[in-house]
Write a protein that binds this DNA or RNA. Structure first.
Lengths: 239, 239
DNA sequence: CGCAGTGTTGAAGCATATCAACTTGGGTGG
DNA sequence: CCACCCAAGTTGATATGCTTCAACACTGCG
């Protein structure tokens, strides 16, 4: 059940057998969510944190005028709301973008981890730090990159993150988002996202049909996106 | 020396006398930086983390075309690169926006804290989680708010964060950024930022002269920014 | 068959960037 | 002390990017 989590944590540092068994013991109660369901609601105070097992979920905030901004995408192996363990009150919601299978870790058990397993604690902490690094990269893309480069950068990031948890098939991966949802990720209108996507297609960089993205030219794509994966901390070293 | 840090951490939960003395013992070597100096450079692997004592600093990334995006502003009491403790390699730089006084905490000592002081560890972890929450709020503002509302939101946030560390004087605070630097925060051109700022002035919401911001109408400002400080986790409760 | 969600396209209008010029104030060297 | 200079702020004009509105095509599904 925690295979993807172990691949995720294992991309940063070695996870010991003891740590593996502790994780196994505190992660339980598998549940499913359907498209559009809130895994966690804004303003709630959950007593557990949620681990993605299958599917894609998104953190979002909705403004008074009804517009939505998605601030993060989560893939299997991600803890989507480890934040709530210490922040207590959710300042945003998390919604299922596809059918999602998840499991839970009680905050009480996580607290015990912080009291008895310092190295594992640091690995979980790091997981939330990488979240923050992704946020920063999105800020840079939104603020200063061209729309085309922004979209390209996002596809590069998803490719690398899905690779870590072995959800890449050749040069392709499943991306269960509509263009309208993708526009909410990039902070664009649906129409403009559509036209930008077509530029990437015309340039021969990607294909994106029936919820599947295929990278046609990784070299050119990373170059035009100025993609540098350093921010994902993908090196196995003592933490 | 750690007064501001204690006010910062103390805004989330009680800090015990023992924790205070541990912090005091691991934070040392006060240094100063001048405007434009890098406190931490992109790509470096610092052996310590940096605590702001005085001044304002900014995390930033520069793209190949020379444009800059600022992804965070740090005020006294903030650890600017607690991230590096676990991320190891800095994926961005941190620059002094004013004269800055800082102190350092060795990563070796921070590691010891994670092994012996679980509650203090959680408080430091929370500090980085709030950083992430601020990033998310900036993403929402950049992606979906009007420019005017984005700027208003940022001023609200700075007011509240500076209030925590007692750097608000009446309704005013020092903001040692030029308009050009502020444009790099919001992801705008200098000209457009200037015109937006004048709208806020014309609306009678703020004054901003000689590096000092004065909030003229907090009610209207928060309303037009849809500012809700929940994301800053400003409630003292067990963490 | 018809319907709803999704993707695609074109046209019009608004928002923002870019370019260029001018003002202001503080600091400095003659 | 004055003349000058430079950084910061301000303003207007033009060009581009992006949103909005509206229409239509395609697909899967009841």
């Amino acid at each position: 059940m925690i295979e993807k989590l172990l691949r995720n944590l294992g991309s940063h540092d070695v996870v010991t057998a003891e740590e593996r068994s502790i994780l196994q013991s505190i992660i339980m109660r598998t549940t499913s969510f359907e498209i559009g369901d809130d895994l966690v609601s804004q303003g709630s105070r959950p007593g557990h944190s949620t681990l993605m097992l299958e599917g894609i979920s998104a953190r979002y905030k909705i403004l008074e005028d009804g517009s939505r901004q998605i601030t993060a995408l989560h893939v299997p192996g991600d803890f989507v709301d480890l934040h709530a363990f210490l922040m207590k009150t959710m300042d945003h919601g998390i919604v299922a973008m596809s059918h999602c299978k998840v499991a839970f870790a009680d905050h009480h058990d996580l607290k015990t981890v912080t009291e008895t397993m310092p190295h594992l604690t640091r690995l979980l902490w790091l997981d939330t730090l990488v979240d923050g690094a992704v946020h920063r990269e999105w800020l840079v893309a939104m603020g200063r990159r061209s729309t085309k480069s922004h979209l390209a950068h996002l596809l590069c990031e998803l490719y690398v993150r899905l690779k870590v948890v072995e959800l890449i098939d050749g040069a392709s991966f499943k991306l269960p988002l509509s263009q309208s949802e993708m526009a909410d990720v990039l902070g664009l209108s649906l129409v403009h996202l559509n036209k930008t996507l077509q530029q990437l297609r015309r340039d021969g960089l990607v294909r994106w049909e029936s919820r599947t993205v295929e990278i046609l030219d990784w070299e050119k794509l990373t170059e035009m996106a100025e993609f540098d994966p350093t921010y994902l901390s993908l090196s196995v070293e003592p933490r």
